Computed example of a mutant assay.
Amino acid sequence: MKAAYCSQAGGPEVLTYGNVADPVIGDGDVLVRVEAVSIEGGDVISRRIGQPASERHVVGYQAGGVVAAVGAAVTRFSPGQRVVAHAAFGSHAELFAAPEAQCFAVPDGVPMDVAATVPVTFGTAHDALFEFGKLAAGETVLIQGAAGGVGIACVQLAKRAGATVIGTAHGADRLERLRGLGLDHGIDYAREDIGARTKELTGGRGADLVVDMAGGKGLAQLLAALAYRGRFAAIGGSSGEFPVFTFRDLLAKNLTVIGVYLALEIGRRASEMRSQPTIPGSPPASWSCRSIGYSRCHKLPKPMLTSSEGILSAACCCTRDGHSRTVDLGGKTRS
């Protein structure tokens, strides 16, 4: 099969598109014939600093398509079904093998190049805001990196939950587009001090929750932006640096720091579901984000996703040039 692969970490130049062996599925796996892939921010970080699993390490961890085959123990899917799947690697290829627990049925009428971007991005946003962040209506959330994939999802979900949404991005144009998705206040981090501006916007109180996708040198400003007993959800390090907290950082305002890693949650929740004979209120063939704990997802009004000049893309992803894109293996790219 054709795939995007690498043999070492580094810049975009380490990627090669060529022939690799077809994946071999185990008893609990689903083999997907890929129609669209989602290039996530984590893909870029993995390419830069990750350790390839083989000489021809197929990159990517999320894609959508049609089930080509299933392992002997798979019960929720069969060949011909439309699904989105994710795994540790291997999605940017013509064929993608993933555990059944990490596959989600795609409803009829939902374009595959949109569906392929949803589980990791919106699942991570939901966990950061609600499962761990405990965001409630009337609270204020500060989203660092609001123009990125998870940031876009956070803006939409937080607004629909009744929170006041403050987001950071580079440039007034990106912030203006985010306002159409629910952003209440925008901060251009290249021109404004995040902590001081957040305090100004909240009457000196600060944000109840910070969701940070960037990491790096902005940590001090984000801590300054938090209210007393605020919560800090650490998701990633798109800047190339991960946040490091000191004991004094936490004691200064009695802060709570939360790590958010969706893959661990899906694995644990899937294991819990497997111990139950059925999924209450949901037939096995419709196993979805809702089935593994994202109960709020189905209540949100449509449309939730948007696309505009590669910044606010349904793809919720980061490519070589830092923009968001949905990649269709049929040769089309929607920016």
Rank of each mutant, 00 (worst) to 15 (best):
G60E: 07
G60W: 02
Y61G: 13
Q62N: 05
Q62T: 05
Q62I: 05
Q62S: 06
Q62W: 02
A63E: 05
A63W: 02
G64L: 03
G64S: 08
G64N: 05
G64P: 06
G65F: 04
V66F: 07
V67W: 09
V67S: 07
A68M: 08
A68L: 10
A68D: 14
A69Y: 06
A69N: 11
A69Q: 12
G71E: 10
G71D: 08
G71K: 04
G71L: 07
G71M: 07
A72P: 11
A72H: 13
A73D: 11
A73P: 00
A73E: 09
A73T: 05
V74C: 06
V74H: 02
V74W: 01
T75A: 14
T75D: 12
T75P: 01
T75K: 15
R76A: 06
R76T: 02
R76S: 04
F77M: 06
F77P: 02
S78Q: 15
S78W: 10
S78P: 07
S78V: 14
P79R: 12
P79A: 13
P79C: 12
P79M: 12
P79S: 13
P79N: 13
G80C: 12
G80L: 13
G80T: 08
Q81E: 13
Q81T: 10
Q81I: 03
R82Q: 12
R82A: 12
R82L: 09
V83I: 12
V83S: 02
V83P: 02
V83L: 06
V84Q: 07
V84C: 11
V84M: 08
V84F: 09
V84S: 06
V84H: 06
V84L: 09
A85G: 08
A85V: 03
A85T: 00
A85F: 00
A85S: 06
A85C: 09
H86D: 11
H86Y: 14
A87N: 11
A87C: 07
A87I: 03
A87Q: 04
A87K: 03
A88T: 15
A88P: 10
A88V: 15
A88R: 15
F89K: 11
F89D: 13
G90N: 02
S91W: 08
S91F: 09
S91E: 04
H92M: 13
H92R: 02
H92T: 09
H92A: 10
A93Q: 03
A93W: 01
A93L: 06
E94Y: 03
E94G: 09
E94H: 09
L95W: 05
L95Q: 06
L95V: 07
F96P: 03
F96I: 10
F96C: 08
F96K: 04
A97K: 05
A97N: 03
A97R: 05
A98Y: 00
A98G: 01
A98R: 02
P99E: 01
P99R: 00
P99S: 01
E100Y: 01
E100V: 00
E100K: 01
A101W: 13
A101L: 14
A101T: 14
Q102S: 15
Q102N: 15
Q102E: 14
